[in-house]
């Protein structure tokens, strides 16, 4: 199977990665190469094999439902690229 640049653009949009027109073809070729290489996985018989979800060594844990941390507004906001008082800012979403 081979990728077309339309698909590359669609994926780039989903990933919000920002794609220049010049880049699309180069990335298409590279991704196509990687996909061709992973194609070999199709030879493996995976009938009745469950997907691996962790090593099974970490047991799910319960804890008491209480606040364990918080009150760190300044710390949380300290790396904001832009802020207004206690808020993160973004471009206007609703006119």
């Amino acid at each position: 199977m081979s990728l077309d640049t339309r698909t590359v653009r669609r994926i780039a949009k989903l990933a919000r990665i920002g794609l220049d027109d010049q880049e699309a073809e180069g990335l298409r070729q590279e991704l196509d190469g990687i996909l061709g290489w992973v194609e070999q996985l199709n030879e493996v018989d995976i009938t009745d094999v469950p997907p691996m979800i962790g090593t099974g060594l970490a047991k799910p844990r319960l804890r008491v439902d209480v606040v364990t941390d918080g009150g760190k507004r300044e710390a949380v906001l300290s790396n904001a690229p832009d802020r207004a008082d206690a808020f993160f800012t973004v471009p206007k979403v609703v006119e």
């Binding site: 996985l41 199709n42 493996v44 995976i46 094999v49 469950p50 997907p51 691996m52 979800i53």
Partner: peptide, 8 residues
């Protein structure tokens, strides 16, 4: 598929 092969 990859996660299943990971099991193998």
């Amino acid at each position: 598929r990859a996660q299943k092969i990971r099991t193998l």
